[in-house]
């Protein structure tokens, strides 16, 4: 057995898993709070990548150094995507808060199509090259061929984001309000929590994290197009369901399980069928463990 090949696949799986995790967190947070699958979430990630491309092109043109450019472009992407996430919620979901569950779901698909078409019309349908913004670190040079500096940054960023998010949810006042709102929206309102604001903040936080994922994947792969959020979004959704939708540790676990197993499947079986593989996993979970790895079964929710 070729262990270095296996190692490579596992490291590649970690990178995939990180990106899925950054996206899956947004799905699971929104689902946890308003029980909606936000199909536009993948497109928010795409908007983040486009914002970063535009911002970094401008910045590099003005001679800003690479590292500063990626940080500023990342910040621009986070702000822009958050604003989109906030607006999509206000326009497409909030008016349907008391409608049947199917209505906001259809609205979400509409929002997704809208964002894709909007970028298609305003930008292009072609793949655009994305500059490799993350430099190859000198200290990392011996390992560069195994696990690139960009991949290292992706993994570390993901870990940092997860830690910050955990602190936010567990210990801050707004985090507690988010958990309370997700467990019982009426009771949260009776305690004086402005539920609409909590929902808005959830969309903003989820979108910001997705934007970070979008920028990182774009600078890893080196090209973007208006459709990039679709498959990534669906895969992250599979990861969130695999982990147990509504559960944040579940989303992270599901993402890494999906990333690693997808990577192994690609390496040992076939790369042509990797998307089929992900959806096979989805079908299998829905049949055998619909509440996911760490999900709570519905009847526990009193």
């Amino acid at each position: 057995m070729d262990f270095s090949y296996l190692g490579q696949l596992l490291l590649g799986g970690l990178t995939r898993g990180s990106i899925y995790a950054l996206l899956a967190l947004g799905y699971t947070m929104v689902y946890g709070i308003i029980e909606l699958i936000n199909f536009a979430h993948g497109d928010i990630y795409m908007v983040g990548a486009f914002t970063a491309l535009i911002a970094s092109t401008v910045l590099l043109n003005y001679g800003v150094p690479h590292l500063a450019a990626i940080i500023l472009a990342g910040v621009a992407a986070v702000i822009y995507s958050s604003a989109y996430g906030y607006t999509v919620e206000k326009i497409a979901y909030k008016p349907l808060r008391n409608a049947s569950r199917l209505a906001p779901l259809i609205s979400a698909i509409g929002a997704s199509l809208f964002l894709e078409s909007y970028v298609l019309l305003l930008q292009t349908s072609d793949f655009l090259p994305f500059p490799a913004l993350i430099p190859n670190f000198k200290f990392w040079a011996p390992y560069e061929s195994l696990f690139s500096s960009t991949e290292l940054v992706i993994l570390i960023t993901t870990i940092v984001v997860m830690i910050l998010l955990t602190v936010l949810i567990k210990f801050t006042k707004i985090g507690k309000a988010m958990r309370a709102t997700s467990q019982d929206r009426v009771m949260a309102a009776l305690m004086g929590i402005n539920v609409d604001r909590v929902i808005s903040i959830t969309f903003i936080v989820g979108s910001a994290i997705a934007a970070i994922g979008g920028v990182l994947i774009a600078s890893h792969i080196g090209q973007i197009n208006f459709y990039m959020g679709f498959i990534a979004g669906i895969k992250a959704f599979v990861a969130a369901v695999l982990g147990g939708i509504g559960s944040m540790p579940g989303a992270v676990l599901g993402s890494f399980v999906l990333g690693l197993s997808e990577s192994l499947f690609t390496g040992y079986v076939s790369s042509d069928y990797q998307d089929v593989f992900a959806f096979t996993i989805l079908v299998a979970i829905l049949i055998f463990r619909p509440s996911g790895l760490l999900g709570r079964s519905e009847n526990q929710k009193v």
Binding site: K173, R179, V186, M191, G192, Q300
Partner: peptide, 26 residues
């Protein structure tokens, strides 16, 4: 104006202390 609603509606996955914290939210 504070309400203890029918069925109590405790936040099931928050701890007792966190439930009390929510009371002091404002």
């Amino acid at each position: 104006i504070s309400q203890v609603p029918e069925g109590r509606r405790i936040f099931p996955y928050l701890t007792v202390m966190e439930n009390l914290d929510m009371g002091a939210f404002l």
